[in-house]
Design a protein around this nucleic acid. Structure first.
Length: 768
RNA sequence: GCGGAGGUGGCGAAAUUGGCAGACGCACCAGCUUGAGGUGCUGGCGCCCACAAGGCAUAGGGGUUCAAGUCCCCUCCUCCGCACCA
């Protein structure tokens, strides 16, 4: 906790040194009970609605973290925080959140999220992985007897009942294997049934067959290795026959049952029908093991010669399919589904790849799951009035297995809220992604002690107009928070379906050809950069080097270039101003002069100024290409520095115009570099500096934080600057002057007071 | 394999709807300034040929157009995501 808080402090300091303006009054710290109690509160609401549940299942275990991970947190078989650590599969009892209940809605919602990048929407679509298909029961041929006669008998029976409907008696006695397929139209070409090695039926087969067991274990091992290599897709197909057979319910065809390593246990039913003639994988497998290949789909009118198996297109008609011959694939799918439903051996289904969100973590650090295990009453939720379940502060961290909390008796031993008897607390904590799933709602009402937030307030603010984050959260945070939003909506707390209208994914910082990361040792600390070039240059370079949606190639020479530019601006404004003063003749402002008296030089300068303002105004409200904003300012400065001095000396440009132009320039630069010195400001004719808390409701305590020191390089010298968050609002002018005085009094000599202005207002102000 | 984003000088990049390709900056070169330089100023800087004029250039090829980096078709390459999902 100390570690976390010190990290927060360090980050905050860096933001402030860079002159970033945030409303710290609404700061939310998720590791404080004031926040995480609401995680627990949400968890209980979900539990009440069956959206939080506990089950035993195979889960991803990171040996480095000593905890379980969600599917979304496993990347190529490795832990999302430990690139080198291979995730293991373990059988554990864990808490899950039923995100699958919203699978369809999460999918459909994507179509409406037009303000989200197509890339993220596609990633989420893939992750949810909806596919429509059919589940079909193949009947298991009676075991034990192996009697051919009986088998034949059975075949006939099934042909009969399969198509005309099973009577109740036989339905119950027949053992079945349920397969999932998206191409039920090809089912007459099924020449085997393939099971995943983990399929329940396989266990039944291997129990009596040690040889088969060994073979199956080998397949499982192959899958495990492939998964570790992060390359399950390229696994070489292996399979073993089980010597058991299944009966195709549509035609009574008897097909062998195999176990194969390319069948996934956790997708569909973990069993497929293999149709080699019309599926590339099945074709490969059948060719390898000499299984039958039966063609049942033909392209409508294609030349026979051009035909080649496997033919996987759905543009064709059925052949070799009994009474269904001649139907198109689409028609056949419908008809066959109906037939299956009528005869109760199958049905149309929708399958999702999305799995429920496993939120149990065996970490000490996290929100305790508010559940109690009572011997008499089973799982009992902690009553609301006992929240928050506090995380014990002093605890020994060991690298042993199991949840660290289980070794704290004071935490574990409780009384059952139901029967009052002795009971044990749940010792798992929640995934930290729970924290981030709804934190932004809390910003609207950060100090609320009675609820996660006030619904009316949220109704005013939400959905978020513009959310910004990295693509790396496309299927993590961004899908969880969409889920959470829907849960809250169904709890009646909010009215929006989606958390954010628009999403902007910013690029990464690249250095020396690699993503900046500690393990690669190519990190650039903002502190070092500020030390070397000042906050203005660092910040301006970050904006100048690339548009924000693209990766940013960090080159120190570039920072130096920007630093030079800022120095030039300083000197230029200074000298122009001085010159204008000495040359100044009338002091008549440009605006009060008739157009005819405007000199050519003035017109040129003012024209360029307005073009620059227009460009930047546009970019700020549109594309956010700050790199071109800065470029246009540089162009403007280049124009100023090439001709203006001469013109000023010749009296072609009045002091009023120069002042006006320079003032605009400095204002334009302010959002791009927090650049505006009081000296300069005063030179430009302002009496004092305007101060205002950017958010009036801010805690007055934070006023101190808003006065922070930023190093700025001016004329090659590093100067300490006090930056005060302000807006260009004249009504607080007096307060501003007062504050400045205070600041100047506290810090000696060469201090310059900085002004930060809200961009849009700034531009409006300049345009007037 | 499927999906997404890209490919423009030595480098980062501009070119919002088709309208002077390479704005702006970095690096480099030359001159001036400077006691010195990660200083300042001036100029040059896609390629070819240069006295000039000109020609060729936006991954490659074709097309539409008075006009194409931009629109259409084909091919190649890079990055990202997903992947025996039945």
């Amino acid at each position: 906790r100390e570690w976390t808080l010190s990290n927060i402090a360090a980050m905050k300091r860096q933001f402030q040194r860079l002159g970033m303006g945030f409303d710290w009054a609404t700061e939310v710290t998720t590791c404080f009970p004031e926040y995480y109690r609401w995680n627990q509160w949400f968890f209980l609401r979900m539990y009440e609605r069956g959206l939080a549940y506990r089950k035993k299942s195979k889960v991803n275990w990171c040996p480095e973290c000593c905890t379980v991970l969600a599917n979304e947190q496993v990347i190529d078989g490795r832990c999302w925080r430990h690139e080198d650590t291979i995730v293991e599969q373990r059988d554990l009892v864990q808490w899950f959140l039923r995100i699958t209940a919203y699978a369809q809605e999460l999918l459909e919602g994507l179509d409406k999220l037009e303000g989200w990048p197509e890339k993220v929407r596609t990633m989420q679509r893939n992750w949810i992985g909806r596919s429509e298909g059919t589940e079909v029961d193949f009947f298991l041929e009676d075991q034990g007897t192996g009697n051919r006669e009986q088998g034949t008998d059975l075949d006939e029976h099934i042909v009969k009942v399969g198509l005309q409907g099973l009577d109740d008696g036989s339905k119950e006695t027949r053992k079945r294997i349920r397969v999932f397929t998206t191409r039920v139209d090809t089912i007459f070409g099924a020449t085997s049934v393939q099971l995943a090695p983990q399929h329940a039926l396989v266990a039944a087969f291997t129990a009596a067959d040690p040889v088969l067991k060994a073979q199956v274990d080998e397949l499982i091992e192959q899958q495990r290795k492939a998964r570790e290599a992060g390359d399950l897709g390229a696994i070489e197909k292996h399979g073993v026959p089980t010597r058991h057979f299944a009966i195709n319910p549509y035609n009574g065809q008897r097909v062998p049952i195999w176990v194969a390593n390319y069948i996934l246990a956790d997708y569909g039913t973990g069993a497929i029908m293999s149709v080699p003639a019309h599926d590339e994988r099945d074709f490969e497998f059948a060719t390898k093991y000499g299984l039958l290949i039966v063609e049942v789909i033909r392209p409508a009118q294609e030349a026979e010669a051009a035909r080649q198996l496997p033919f996987v297109s759905e543009e064709g008609v059925l052949v070799n399919s009994g009474e269904f011959n001649g139907l198109s694939c689409a028609q056949a799918q419908k008809v066959l589904q109906e037939a299956a439903a009528r005869s109760a051996f199958g049905e149309a289904t929708v399958t999702y790849r999305l799995k429920d969100w496993g939120v149990s973590r065996q970490r000490y650090w996290g929100t305790p799951i508010p559940m109690i295990h009572c011997e008499r009453d089973g799982i009992v939720p902690v009553p609301d009035e006992q929240l928050p379940v506090l995380l014990p502060e002093q605890i020994e961290i060991t690298q042993q297995g199991g949840s660290p909390l289980s070794r704290v008796p004071e935490f574990v031993n409780v009384v059952c809220p139901k029967c009052g008897g002795p009971a044990k607390r749940e010792t798992d904590t929640m995934d930290t992604f729970v924290d981030s799933s709804w934190y932004f709602y809390r910003y609207t009402d950060a100090k609320n002690a009675n609820a996660p937030f006030d619904s009316e307030t949220v109704k005013y603010w939400f959905p978020i107009d513009q959310y910004i984050g990295g693509v790396e959260h496309a299927i993590l945070h961004l899908i969880y928070s969409r889920f959470w939003t829907r849960v809250m909506r169904d709890l009646g707390m909010i009215v929006n379906d989606e958390p954010a209208r628009r999403l902007f994914t910013q690029g990464m910082v690249i250095k020396d050809g690699h993503k900046m990361s500690k393990s690669k040792g190519n990190v650039v600390s903002p502190d070092d950069m500020i030390e070397k070039f000042g906050a203005d240059s660092t910040r301006m370079y970050a904006l100048f080097a690339a548009p924000p949606d693209r990766d940013l190639d960090w080159q120190e020479d570039g920072v130096a270039g920007v630093s030079r530019f800022l120095g030039r601006v300083w000197r230029l404004t200074d000298s122009l101003q001085r010159k204008a003063k000495t040359v100044s003749s009338s002091g008549i402002s440009l605006r009060s002069k008739p157009i005819s008296e405007t000199t050519e030089a003035e017109a040129k300068l003012v024209g360029a100024m307005h073009r620059t303002i227009a460009k930047i105004t546009d970019e700020f409200s549109g594309r956010w290409h700050f790199n071109t904003c800065i470029a246009s300012i540089m162009t403007f400065v280049n124009l100023l520095s090439s001709d203006s001095e001469h013109w000023v000396e010749m009296g072609e440009i009045s002091e009023a115009v120069i002042t006006d132009v320079l003032r605009s320039l400095v204002l334009l630069m302010t959002p791009l570099a927090p650049f505006l010195s009081a000296e300069l400001w005063e030179k430009l004719g302002y009496e004092g500096v305007v101060f205002r808390q950017p958010w009036p409701e801010s805690d007055p305590e934070l006023a101190k934080e808003d006065e922070l020191e930023i190093p700025v390089q001016i004329n090659g010298k590093l100067v300490t600057v006090v930056r005060v968050a302000v807006d260009a609002d004249s009504k607080s002018l007096e307060a501003a002057a007062l504050a400045e005085e205070k600041v100047r009094g506290r810090i000696s000599g060469k201090t310059v007071v900085k002004v930060i202005v809200v961009p849009r207002k700034l531009v409006n102000l300049v345009v007037r």
